[in-house]
């Protein structure tokens, strides 16, 4: 279980001109085995939030509790061991270009000091699972985006983590590839029981895979709940805006009814959600 309590992240706290409150009083509980979505526009703070979970960024205030242990101040070996338990994948895959596919998947095990032949065996099993066993000796540059992300997923699973963080993992991929990656993540969640924390700006992605979602806006969570409920009956302006039901300005304030252009855009970008949300309202 991941428990985030009163989390604040402020950049340049001492410099009034550059001071930026990226996260404000975030409280979240993510249960074991669920797929949890954090949705928001770019700059809303979702990347910062997810990086506080594996402490790539340090909270300014607040605590991160993982499986009952307060990890907020973990350093040195404790921190490295914590990260071993949390896999992460990225928007642009972040594979090591000078290593083969196999070498990439072996990297986390190499770093943990696992024996080479054991690491290789496990890496090949993982590549088999993501359907890329035949590409083990290729380099990342020889693979398509979707294949690269599958390698990244195999790599993130190498040390048998219980948690996987996905930072806009499908945002650089086309629709069909996105579907394949989501399907794979679903398998990782169901078959391996890995808790997945996924951040995205795409409502389609969130709806497809998440059990619960939080909507984040300007560093604060404005809405949270089971995906179905949030999508059927969005309460916050931001959730409604992301679903294409209303328009908000840059600060997330509502600017009233949709005009004709907005309505058209909503139909283009979020038609299915808009329809399901309208149904939800009608009920």
């Amino acid at each position: 279980m991941i428990k985030i309590e009163h989390l604040y992240k402020t950049y340049h706290a001492d410099d009034p001109e550059r001071r930026h409150e990226a996260l404000k009083d975030i409280n979240l509980t993510i249960d074991d085995g669920e797929v949890y979505g954090i949705i928001g526009e770019s700059g809303a703070g979702k990347s910062t939030l997810v990086r506080n979970i594996n402490l790539l960024e340090r909270p300014t205030e607040g605590t991160i509790v993982i499986d009952g242990k307060d990890v907020t101040d973990y350093k040195g070996k404790q921190l490295l061991d914590l990260r071993k338990n949390i896999g992460m994948i990225f928007q642009h895959f972040s594979l090591f270009a000078q290593r083969t596919v196999l070498g990439n998947v072996m990297f986390p095990m190499e770093v943990q000091g696992k024996k080479k032949d054991e690491a290789e065996k496990r890496a090949l099993e993982l590549l088999d699972m993501v359907g890329l066993a035949d590409r083990a000796e290729n380099y990342p540059s020889q693979l398509s985006g979707g294949q690269q992300q599958r390698v990244a997923i195999a790599r993130a699973l190498a040390n048998e983590p219980t948690i996987m963080l996905c930072d806009e993992a499908t945002s650089a991929l086309d629709t069909m590839t996105t579907k394949q990656i989501l399907k794979l993540l679903h398998r990782v969640n169901k078959e391996l029981g890995v808790t997945i924390v996924l951040i995205t700006h795409s409502m389609t992605v969130a709806e497809a895979i998440c059990d619960r979602v939080a909507v984040i806006e300007n560093g604060s969570i404005v809405e949270e709940g089971p995906t179905k409920e949030v999508f059927a009956n969005p309460q916050s302006h931001m959730a409604r805006a992301l679903l294409g039901l209303e328009d908000v300005d840059e600060d997330g304030r509502p600017v009233g009814e949709l005009d004709e252009f907005d309505a058209e855009m909503s139909r283009e970008f979020a038609a299915p959600h808009a329809a399901s949300a309208a149904e939800g309202k009608a009920e």
Partner: peptide
């Protein structure tokens, strides 16, 4: 992002 990826895997 490569450095970040390595950090996320617990590399020193």
């Amino acid at each position: 992002s490569l450095i970040e990826a390595a950090q996320s895997m617990g590399a020193s």
